[in-house]
Simulated scan of single mutants.
Amino acid sequence: MQSPQESPGPVAYLAGVGTALPGDPVDNARLAKAIGVNDEWIDVFIGTRTRHFARDLDSGEVRWSLADLCAQAGERAITAARIAPEEIEFVVMGTATPDHLMPATVNTVTDLLGLDQIPTYQLQSGCAGAVQALELGRTLITGGGYRTGLVIGGDVCSKHLDLNRDLSGAAPSDLVNYVLFGDGAGAVVLTDEPRGQGIAVRRVLNRFTGLGREPGQIIDWFGLADRHEDRQAVREDYKAIEESVPVIAEEILWELLEELGWTTDDVDFLLPPQLSGHMTRKITQQLNLPGAVEVSCVADTGNNGNALPFLQLDALVGQMTQGQRALAVAVESSKWIKSGFALEKA
Rank of each mutant, 00 (worst) to 15 (best):
L112S: 08
L311E: 09
L180Q: 01
R207N: 07
R51I: 01
E86Q: 15
W336L: 04
C157T: 01
Q117F: 15
P172V: 02
A104E: 08
K159W: 03
G198A: 14
T48F: 02
D314P: 11
L175G: 00
R202C: 04
P8M: 12
V156L: 04
S168P: 03
S334F: 01
A54N: 04
E255F: 03
P25D: 11
R235D: 05
S168A: 06
N38A: 03
N304L: 13
A128Y: 03
H228Q: 09
L313W: 14
V317D: 04
L140M: 15
L257I: 05
E251M: 01
V176N: 00
S339C: 05
I219C: 01
D39A: 00
I248M: 04
I152W: 10
V106L: 08
D314T: 11
G212E: 14
A32Y: 00
G318R: 10
M102S: 14
P273V: 13
Q117S: 15
V204K: 04
L275T: 15
R231K: 13
I252S: 06
A326Q: 05
Q5K: 11
N28A: 06
L150S: 14
G144T: 11
D166C: 02
L253M: 09
E255V: 03
I46T: 11
N28P: 10
L123N: 07
G94E: 05
E294S: 14
Y178R: 00
P172I: 01
P272Y: 07
R213H: 07
V189F: 12
I78D: 10
H52N: 14
V267R: 02
G323K: 06
N303K: 10
Q322T: 12
F341G: 05
G196A: 14
R195C: 12
R63A: 08
L260E: 11
G323W: 07
K338N: 03
D155T: 06
R63W: 11
S244D: 06
G198T: 06
A73Y: 10
T321V: 10
W254S: 10
P85Q: 12
C157E: 02
A299T: 14
N177W: 02
